[in-house]
């Protein structure tokens, strides 16, 4: 009894029925089907063949996003109409918390891959220990360092010198993303991105403080600053990717260094874009509709949690992908 207060037992709102899930399913499955066909056209299809895959993908995505818009709008309206009891609100809080935990585990898979490759696989491929006993047969001459300067394939003279089956050409980059020149530290973009993202976590917190004391001006201003910082972050990441492809020769095909670099920073960047969209929606809600009060603003709080999560992931990335 002691664990639950009586206020938690107002009527729990259970919607009578809802077409949202079916609509979202149609959107999701259509886009997935389109996306799979786009990829298969690209990899297995005849070049230049006519295909409607892209149209299916875009139509599906449009449908899906429209559904999500309607879905979120109706939950917001339910809350404004006072249909959500304190207990129901707690369900949303729990839902968001465990969703973020699942996102953490998604990144964990990629960080795990990075550590496994750097600590174990690299040295083995270069002939270390019992597991490296095949080195002289398979990848003779391969030496491992991180960032990887040479793929095992290049060490044996390219695809032609490869003993095992070929599954692509892996060309290592001329330059890596690691910190190199102390004198030109200010040119090193990841540092700027770190500063930007860390400050954005602070600014979103200042916005929250403003909301808590009922200062809407402070809330709107600092939330706006946060969204702007997010945009700048994404722009810098775009510049960084452009440099990687155009000048460094660092691509997805650059062996495992490129793979882990782009997948980790890419998924992080995607999450930044998601978080930014979430915060932007909260900003629009506040500016245009005057939503949120000092004691009822979970839409914003959930987005800010997500934003802090994205920030923490970046700290991990900065340490393990860029510095160490």
């Amino acid at each position: 009894m002691a664990t639950q207060d009586t206020a938690a037992h107002e009527e729990y709102y259970v919607p009578e029925k809802s077409g949202m899930a079916i609509s979202a399913t149609i959107g999701l499955v259509t886009s997935i089907f389109g996306a799979a066909n786009v990829l298969n056209d690209m990899t297995f299809g005849e070049p230049g063949a006519e295909s409607s895959s892209w149209s299916i993908l875009i139509a599906g995505l449009f449908w899906f996003i429209a559904t999500l818009f309607v879905w979120f709008r109706s939950t917001i309206r339910e809350n404004l109409a006072g249909m959500n009891s304190g207990q129901l609100k707690k369900s949303y809080v729990l839902g968001m918390f465990w969703f973020i935990f699942s996102e953490v585990m998604f990144f964990f898979a990629f960080f795990g891959a990075l550590f496994y490759v750097r600590v174990l696989v690299g040295p083995w491929l270069a002939g270390e220990g019992d597991a490296g006993a095949m080195n002289h047969l398979l990848w003779s001459g391969f030496e491992f360092d991180w960032p990887m300067k040479q793929t095992p394939q290049e060490a044996v003279g390219g695809v032609a010198g490869q003993v095992i089956a070929n599954n692509g050409e892996f060309v290592s980059p001329g330059t890596s993303m690691a910190f190199s020149e102390v004198s030109a530290w200010y040119k090193w973009l990841p540092l700027w991105n770190t500063i930007i993202l860390l400050s954005s976590s602070v600014t979103v917190h200042i916005a929250h403080l403003g909301l808590l004391k009922g200062d809407r001006k402070q809330f709107n201003l600092w939330l706006g600053i946060t969204v702007t910082l997010a945009l700048i972050f994404l722009y810098i990441q775009y510049v960084e990717y452009y440099e990687a492809y155009a000048h460094f020769g660092l691509t997805l095909n650059s062996g495992i260094y490129g793979s882990t670099f782009f997948m980790l920073t890419g998924f992080h960047g995607f999450h930044v874009a998601m978080g930014m969209t979430m915060l932007l929606i909260q900003l629009i809600r506040s500016v245009r509709h005057g939503h949120f009060t000092s004691d009822d603003h979970f839409g914003f709080e959930a987005s800010s949690w997500y934003w802090h999560f994205v920030d923490v992931v970046w700290v991990g990335l900065f340490l393990f992908v860029y510095i160490l």
Partner: peptide
């Protein structure tokens, strides 16, 4: 990514495993 975008997570030739 390995199938469609040329990454080498599971390919030793690119330093994966």
């Amino acid at each position: 990514m390995d199938i469609h975008f040329g990454t080498s997570f599971f390919s030793a030739a690119g330093g994966g495993d």
